[in-house]
Simulated scan of single mutants.
Amino acid sequence: MSSKQIFLSHIHEEKDLALLIKQAIEEEFSGFIEVFVSSDGTSIPAGANFLKRIEDGLINCIGAIYLISPVSVKRNWINFELGAVWIRNAISIKTEGHEVPALPFCHSSMTLNDLPQPICNLNSIIANQASQLEFAFRSLQTAVGGKGALRTDFDTLAGKIVEFERDYTLGTTVKSFLTLLGGDIKILVEHCENLPTNTTHTNLELGFIPTDVVQKITEFEADQLKGRIKLTTKNPGTSFGPQGAVNGAEASVLIETRLITEFKNLL
């Protein structure tokens, strides 16, 4: 049985979520729907014309899903691919053809109220909510001409999306923060894993650091890692080295150990 195609639009950083949703859809509609994901290694084979395959996917799909996060919503490709399906749908309806649904899947703190124009005019869902995932799958079922009960465990699927969001947001933030601090992250992970089980925080002695690094740590402390780290500085002054005079201070950071142990696979 020939299958129909759903175009799944995503940015590279959100590939794992795209593959998770692709698998769920293809398992639900086995034999009826294939999901085009540009980064899955099969939708665009090695040596194929990338732009031509994207174009073919947008022309031939019976519907499209857009992974919308605070990061992806600012990317040109998402908006380009959304516009292509939007126009196809308008033409199809005008010529009394089938509707080509375009479904934004909001995730990683993107809310429906935060969606900009024109995406906010579409019937979007919050991807980590089971009931809304089921609603989206029923829209796909209608597009493919199917009917009947759905088999997907939407609570389980929503839970997997929550896990992705957790790693994608907090995990990547921790990685960026530790990269800013410098040092051997592997040694830091081993140190935290060897601490007593009731240890909630560990203190990182940074030595003398430049003022701009102090400011960046302060930004993490006030925003993305608020309540999870605490910066302490002392002896502000000037250090003289190969790069010349550098203003800064001696610093240490108190950090939750679980931020390091739970996300060690990302570090």
Rank of each mutant, 00 (worst) to 15 (best):
K226I: 09
L195T: 10
I68T: 02
S43K: 10
L157R: 09
P101M: 10
N194M: 11
I59A: 09
T152E: 08
L122T: 15
S124F: 03
V35K: 02
L170R: 13
E256K: 14
L122M: 14
A136D: 13
L8Q: 09
L51P: 01
E96D: 14
N123E: 14
E219I: 01
Q132E: 15
Q23E: 15
L178V: 00
P70S: 07
I209Y: 03
D184G: 01
E205P: 00
H107Q: 13
P70L: 09
G182M: 02
I62N: 04
S92L: 06
E27V: 02
R53T: 10
G47N: 10
I6Q: 06
E193A: 01
N265E: 14
E27W: 08
K216N: 07
T197P: 00
F135W: 13
Q129D: 11
G182L: 03
F164I: 08
R166G: 10
D114N: 12
V253A: 02
Q23D: 15
D16K: 13
L266N: 08
F220C: 00
I21Y: 09
L170D: 04
I65S: 02
D40Q: 12
L231A: 01
T200V: 05
M110L: 12
G244S: 10
D153Y: 03
L51Y: 09
K216F: 00
I54P: 04
T238M: 09
N235L: 13
Y66N: 07
V85E: 05
A127N: 14
T202Y: 05
L20E: 13
I161G: 07
I44W: 04
L115T: 05
I44M: 10
A48R: 10
Y168S: 12
P242E: 12
G244K: 13
P236V: 07
K230W: 00
G227C: 06
K22S: 10
T261R: 03
S3F: 09
L140W: 11
L115M: 04
T111M: 06
T261M: 03
K160R: 14
S108P: 00
F154G: 04
L157Y: 03
L58F: 11
G148D: 08
V189P: 06
N247E: 14
T95L: 15
I6W: 07
G57W: 01
